[in-house]
Design a protein around this nucleic acid. Structure first.
Length: 475
DNA sequence: CTGGGGAGGGGGCCC
DNA sequence: CGGGCCCCCTCCCCA
């Protein structure tokens, strides 16, 4: 057949035996042909799998045997690609793989997706499917799962806005590859990632029944997120944009802060939305609420799941702990606990000077020493090295920094708010106790306990009388 | 508009 | 297991 036109990615071909002057002409869009062909091919392969025809790969998941085609698994999963390409020369008749890190039900969902492009996600299986997909290195599935979770969060937020009670749980079915997506977006191919949410289909009735049958303790985090519009996890969507996935090149995650998969660096709030007594009250309430919600969220956490992350050089499995909110895994439980704070928004360490709160003590310490103690022996203006003697401490609100003698002379003493009440060697009064008595371990004094919010008392003890935290972020 | 630096946040890992 | 250190990254401000 001859090619008669080129319409971008898709080309039009004339049917065999038809000349250009024959009418009517029948035009074939190659994109449609491709989509249709892929669809049929996948259906055929799936049918062969169901009939166990030409299956040359056995996958054992917790004792349950799955039969599949080696080439299909190879094409769909980075894990299987590695596994199947590591074999000896001359591949054996059959290839076996064994998994104990996810359930047969989860692998069924994965396998069905591979062979049909349909990902049967629900609030109950999304975390495990995402975990399995992460293990099997199937980025498209991970992306679908993340979109599912993100959409669930959006739904919750919308529900909150409209003050509506919504269905408690939903089941979503993602379509990809040779399914509906192919016909609508044939150019995307069967394994295109980041499908638009519009391609989702929802089945609320089914979700209801599946939810009702679940024991409360079986409800995963996602359920908690979806069913409780006020769930702290919703703050996740607000504070972070997305879920982080270091492996996902498309990820713009929670907080999806686009980092290499790291959780949530937040943008600072613009100055225009800060300050005001009302807002202070709101902030206090918000903090209390956030702390309560963090506790609530912790209470709804499923048991921390240990997963086999990889194999060490002795081929022994290395146990890791998986975050229930994202695909991140860590070696130690304590590290996971620390990591969870980026999801819960918990900030247990407030700065007594500016009231800013931090997720870690070390961050608070670093902040305090840098901002309020002028520990850096560097001239703020010319960046030269100074000593405790030559670097004069300058106060600017609750901020303190050092200026060298030369810069002071250049600028003029009157223009610099010098900290005349103490020498640079002295600890700021902030380090005194609330009652003014100096304690032995001054470093610990600004390590605030959970109860205090020291905006009021800190001001009284500060040498700097006027506390200007207008440039401080309100957390 | 752009690059540099400061500040904050998160992960890995040691003690 | 918590504390702490180091490293890296991102965001924001400013020259």
């Amino acid at each position: 057949m001859d090619m008669v036109a080129d319409l971008g990615a898709s080309r039009l071909y004339r049917a065999p035996g038809e000349s250009s002057h024959q009418q009517p002409q029948r035009w074939f869009n190659t994109a449609d042909i491709t989509a249709s062909h892929q669809n049929n091919l996948l259906k055929q392969l799936n049918e062969q799998r169901r009939q166990e025809l030409f299956c040359d790969c056995s996958v054992l998941v917790e004792g349950q045997l799955f039969r599949a085609h080696r080439n299909v698994l190879f094409a769909s999963s980075g894990y299987f690609r590695m596994l199947l390409s590591q074999g000896p020369d001359g591949l054996p008749e059959t290839v076996n793989a064994t998994f104990d890190v996810f359930s047969p039900e989860t692998f069924t969902v994965i396998l069905d997706f591979i062979y049909s492009g349909q990902l049967d996600l629900s609030s109950h299986n999304v975390i495990e499917v995402m975990s399995a997909a992460s293990y099997l290195q199937m980025n498209s599935v991970i992306t679908y799962c993340k979109n599912f979770i993100k959409s669930s969060l959006d739904i919750s937020v919308k529900d909150e806005d409209s003050d509506r009670c919504h269905s408690l749980s939903e089941t979503c079915s993602f379509t990809s590859g040779a399914g509906e997506e192919s016909t609508e977006h044939p150019q995307q191919g069967p394994r295109s990632v980041s499908p638009p949410p519009a391609l989702w289909t929802r089945d609320n009735s089914r979700s209801q029944s599946s939810f009702m049958g679940k024991e409360p303790e079986q409800e995963g985090v996602v359920s908690a997120i979806k069913t409780d519009p006020s769930s702290p996890a919703n703050e996740l969507s607000a504070e972070t944009d997305d879920l982080h996935d270091p492996q996902d090149p498309l990820y713009t995650l929670p907080g999806s802060e686009r980092r290499r998969g790291k959780a949530g660096t937040k943008r600072r709030a613009p100055n225009s939305i800060r300050s005001g007594q009302h807002e202070d009250l709101d902030i206090q309430e918000a903090r209390t609420l956030k702390a309560e919600k963090a506790e609530e969220l912790y209470a709804t956490l499923p048991p921390i799941v240990g997963v086999i992350g990889h194999f060490n050089k002795d081929s022994n499995p290395v146990m890791r702990f998986k975050c229930p909110f994202c695909t991140h895994t860590v070696k130690r439980k304590a590290d996971l606990k620390r990591h969870l704070r980026c999801h819960t928004g918990e900030r247990p360490y407030p700065c007594q000077a500016c009231n800013k709160r931090f997720t870690r003590l070390e961050h608070l310490r670093s902040h305090f020493e840098t901002i309020h103690q002028a520990r850096k022996l560097v001239c703020r203006k010319c960046k030269c090295q100074v000593t405790e003697e030559t670097g004069h401490v300058v106060c600017e609100g609750t901020r303190r920094y050092r200026i060298c003698t030369t810069c002071i002379q250049e600028v003029g003493c009157d223009d610099i708010p010098m900290d005349g009440l103490q020498t640079p060697n002295e600890e700021p009064a902030l380090l005194l106790g609330v009652d003014g008595e100096e304690e032995g371990d001054t470093k610990r004094n600004w390590m605030v306990n959970d109860e205090d919010d020291l905006a009021e008392d800190s001001g009284a003890d500060l040498i700097i009388q006027q506390v200007d935290d207008s440039d401080e972020e309100v957390q």
